[in-house]
Simulated scan of single mutants.
Amino acid sequence: MSQMSVVEATNAALRQELARDPKVFVYGEDVAHYGGMFRVTDGLLRDFGADRVIDTPISESGFLGMGLGAAMAGMRPVAELMFIDFSLVAMDQLLNNIAKTHYMSGGSVPVPLTIITQGGGYRGAAAQHSQMLEALLLHLPGLKVVLPSNAADAKGLLAAAIRDDNPVVFINHKQLFGAKSEVPDGEHVVPLGQARTMREGTDVTLFTYSYLVGMGMQAAEEAATQGVSVEVVDLRTLNPLDWETIAASVTKTHRVVIAHEAHLRCGVGVDLSHQIQSRLFDELDAPIQVVAALDAPIPFAKELEDVVLPSPARLLEACLGAVHG
C-alpha cells in the first residue's frame, strides 16, 4: 500500500491501463504537454509518447465524437473534459451518439470510451465551474456514471471503467484532488456497481457519494455523540446502482437520508428516494430525507456558496431528524 492523492491515484490508473493495453490512449485539452489542468495526466506524454497521449483543440463536441469513432473502431480511448460544466456543449455527442450507439447497433458495436472529468464546488469558482451534473448523464440510458470519494477508489474504479465495453463517465471532485489515502500497489481494479459501507450503523442510513462521503462521516461521528448510530454508504457508481447493498441497509436501519452536492430538483436523491419507497415502503419507519444544493446557481461569494451547498451540519440535522422526527 502507498499513500497517494486522488490526482496521483488517477494518474496511476491511467499508467496501469496504458501499460496493460496498447489500444488505450488518452486525449483532451492540455493533457499531453501541460499534463492536464489538475496534473492528472502529468508525465504520460513522456512515458507513453505522442501517439497515445494527445492534445486536442478546444472543441469538446469534436473530440468526444472522435472518441466515439475510435471506440467503434476497436480502440479504448480515454477523453478528458477539463470541467464537467463543459460537457454541456457536447451533450448531443454524449446523449444522442455515445450513449445510444451500442443499443442502436443491436449490440453489435460496443463503445469502450471512458470520459474523465472534474466537478464540484466549495472553491469559489462560481456558477459555470462549480456544478455537479451527474443527473443529466443518468437521465438517458446508455452511460455508466462513476464518482469516487477517495484515492483507492479513484485508481480502482477508473481501471474498471477503461476495461468496460460501455461508455463510462468518471467524475472526480476537485476538492478531493489533494486528499491522500492508502492505495494498493500494483494492479488495482474496483468493479463498477458495488457500493461500499464506510461506517456501520443501526438507526439511519446515509447514502451519498463523491466529496459528500467525507461530510457524511463527520456528521455520523457527531451524531454518535448524540446517541444516534448512522450507517454511511458510499454509492461509488450511480449507474449501475448497487441495489443489493441499498436494500440491505434500508432493511437494517429503516430510516434513510440521501445526500449529494447536485441540485435537489430532478436529482439523484429524488430518484433514489422513489426507488426505495416504491420497492421497500414497508421497511421505512420515517420519511426519506434528501440533502442537496439549493435550487440556485452556485455563487462566487464564499458566504453565499456555503448557504447553497450541503454542509456537515445539514447532513447531521437530516440524520437526527430522520430518527427523532
Rank of each mutant, 00 (worst) to 15 (best):
L140T: 15
E200N: 10
A152Q: 14
L176H: 05
N166S: 15
K144L: 05
L192R: 03
N150I: 05
L157I: 11
A126G: 00
T117S: 11
G120V: 05
P141L: 05
L136N: 08
M104E: 13
Q128T: 13
A159D: 03
G121C: 02
L94W: 02
I171P: 04
K100T: 14
I98F: 08
Q131T: 10
N96M: 14
G186D: 09
S181P: 04
I84Y: 04
N172D: 14
T208H: 07
L143W: 13
L137D: 05
S108G: 01
A154T: 12
A126F: 03
M198I: 09
A127M: 06
G106A: 07
Q93P: 05
G142Q: 02
E200G: 04
G156P: 05
L157A: 14
T202C: 09
D185K: 14
Q93Y: 07
D164P: 03
M198H: 01
D153A: 14
L94C: 08
K180C: 06
A159Q: 09
A159C: 15
E134L: 06
L157D: 11
T114A: 11
E134Y: 05
I98G: 00
E187Q: 13
A151E: 08
D185Q: 08
R123Q: 15
A99I: 01
V189W: 01
A90C: 01
H129F: 09
S105T: 08
P141S: 15
D164H: 00
I116K: 14
K155I: 02
L206Y: 04
L140Y: 15
G156F: 09
T202N: 13
G119T: 02
G201H: 10
D185H: 02
L176F: 07
L94H: 11
L158C: 15
V145L: 09
R123V: 10
D153V: 07
L137Q: 07
G193C: 09
P191I: 10
T101Q: 12
T114H: 14
Y122N: 01
N172M: 08
F83Y: 14
G107R: 04
G121W: 04
V183E: 02
P167T: 03
E187N: 14
H173S: 04
I98D: 07
A135I: 06
H129T: 05
K144W: 11
A152C: 11
A195P: 11
Y209G: 02
Q93D: 12
V89H: 06
Y122S: 02
T117W: 07
D85V: 02
L176M: 05
V204T: 11
G156N: 06
A151C: 12
Y103M: 00
G106N: 04
V190K: 12
V146P: 00
M91Y: 10
L137M: 15
D203M: 00
P148H: 11
F86S: 02
A154V: 13
A126L: 05
G156Y: 06
P167Q: 00
Q93I: 15
F86K: 01
S105G: 12
G106K: 07
L133F: 15
M104V: 11
N166W: 10
A160L: 05
L176A: 07
N96K: 12
L133R: 08
T202S: 14
R163H: 07
D92F: 03
